[in-house]
Design a protein around this nucleic acid. Sequence first.
DNA 1: GATACTTACGTAAACGTTTAACAAACAAAA
DNA 2: TTTTGTTTGTTAAACGTTTACGTAAGTATC
Lengths: 349, 349
Amino acid sequence: MVSMKDISAVCGVSVATVSKALNDQNDVGKETKKRIRQVAEEMGYFSNSAAKMLKTNRSYNVGVLFAHEDYSGLTHDYYAFVLDSLKRTVEEKGYDITFINTAKQKTGALSYLGHCRSRGFDGVAIVCTDFYSPDILELVRSDIPTVTLDHLFNDVCAVMSNNVHGMQELLTYVYEKGHRRVAYIHGADSSVTQSRLASFYRTAGQLGLTIPDEYICMSPYRDTKGAYLQTMRLLHLQEPPTCILYPDDFSAFGGFNAIQEMRLRVPDDISVAGYDGIRIARHIEPTLTTLRQDTAELGRQMGEKLISLIENPKTTLVETIVVEGHVFEGNSVADINEKGEQHAVTDHI
Amino acid sequence: MVSMKDISAVCGVSVATVSKALNDQNDVGKETKKRIRQVAEEMGYFSNSAAKMLKTNRSYNVGVLFAHEDYSGLTHDYYAFVLDSLKRTVEEKGYDITFINTAKQKTGALSYLGHCRSRGFDGVAIVCTDFYSPDILELVRSDIPTVTLDHLFNDVCAVMSNNVHGMQELLTYVYEKGHRRVAYIHGADSSVTQSRLASFYRTAGQLGLTIPDEYICMSPYRDTKGAYLQTMRLLHLQEPPTCILYPDDFSAFGGFNAIQEMRLRVPDDISVAGYDGIRIARHIEPTLTTLRQDTAELGRQMGEKLISLIENPKTTLVETIVVEGHVFEGNSVADINEKGEQHAVTDHI
DNA sequence: GATACTTACGTAAACGTTTAACAAACAAAA
DNA sequence: TTTTGTTTGTTAAACGTTTACGTAAGTATC
């Protein structure tokens, strides 16, 4: 590996001058700088980031925490898209992304914080994990700039998809399509689930909907089998719903299966709506009506906030950034208004 | 940050002794070692990987190249699953994963190789990219241990899904189900496409199938619209196929849409098969018959080969590891044998 | 009791940078 | 002519490790 020392020898200047030339400092002559840079180029010089890091305490590297739970993490559409956008954003600003090691190492099982300290990450993004583990708490309480996704800690920046508005918009959409008997299969307990469920009830109240208890039930996120079973249950009620909301798009497909098995059709016999807006949902007929979360924006906001936190620690607000999602109108929700056209007209008044 | 120096001061020993104690060398007393380790723990010591790296020229960090093409990269099921498995594998062996920066940086636009040199990656995994770019060539020709996925370079380890066997198995499966008029919509040109296409023709020949030219056409990978159009074309042929093979599962869904639009049913009226085995395909009725690639194994093999290449450069073979995929039997391919049962019996002979 | 070996620790240089402090040369201002 | 300032460069220490080598004491061997 060619180092600054080699360049300095060739150019007949000191190492310090080479360093300054390559870092474009202004206390080095124009001609000298030009020559040094040219020689560096010719010799195939690459800065040694370890040495630079050792001196400057800056790694230009951010850690990303991505837990390996079943059916989540990298292989989850939502998180993968957010990560993709986050990656683009920070890379454009000259930062790299390293995964925070989530494996129990043979030697001494480093904690998350330990790993971050050791690697010298300038900041960390917590994308997907069990937010209640002590390891995570230790990390977010440290002085390392941190941004979380869809979870709120005290004094930690968070980027959140607006689940309250999202559910409100989705339920309102369904309501305006004429549905009055709406069931909601929600996901397993988490802050996201809480937000959506609360918003569901509040919106229902505002719209004057009464939701029987048996219309509300739980099925874990991305569990098609669970969604299938709950859908079956709902379809067998004395007064079944006209529309079912699912915890996510994946689950909605589980619902599809149950509906199909009952020889019913979407949306003619029953309407369904998902949540997330995964790509495949827009490519299968009937296309799924769903609340599409803005993953590109979520990732971008995370990246920009994190970099800002790193580069301007004093002036960057510790805040929660809320990103709006919007209903993607597929054709899985039927318009069952008796006067559909008229309704459409009044919409424009 | 607490350093070895701090520990040495507390313990009243030299920095060298601390280093040796923490690295579990055996030229330091048992008691001393114990005490040093305890103090390190208490003081919250974490090794500075930059310093260690600078001295040892080992980063315990591997670079992963993951290009941001549309509809590929992180957001592609196949690659995401491989990456997930790769990540687990190398993390278990104490390595971290850093993405190789694919963004044009403002300052000096580092090449891939430059980036790797600068970061001091112990090895790189090339998962998904344009293998023909000069930047990639420069990288694979360097002395950095490298493993590629689904692409072969001279003197570079590769892990490949067996596209030849895969297509053979798939076409044979379809044949045994009684299909004689099989169309194949293949993906855009690449070595993977070449392999599959060649295998398709060879297998067809062996089975005695004659494939009319109009049964073979191209639609880009993961392009539902393209697959839709080609499917439409095939369905309007004077003698349409009884089964259509798609470049990938995603495309197969595009085919579904066309079939549905024509008021035909899968598999009753026409059979379809995908390629890849993405998760969603197993959760939608009719479940898709597809050649499921073993992403977990692909990632694991990549990781193990790479680590081996790093740790035992002399004794590690430069080879191509082939991973088998297998037909996932959904219910999108009908059995149209006139004597279906009899055929099933002879299967067991 | 001399020799050799082992154990346990210290010394010091090195890895490749950055940067504060300094210095020489020259120009401009007084 | 002296002072002051600017430009361009050097020196040397420092970042936190690792490791070859040295050394002093203790133990075993003859």
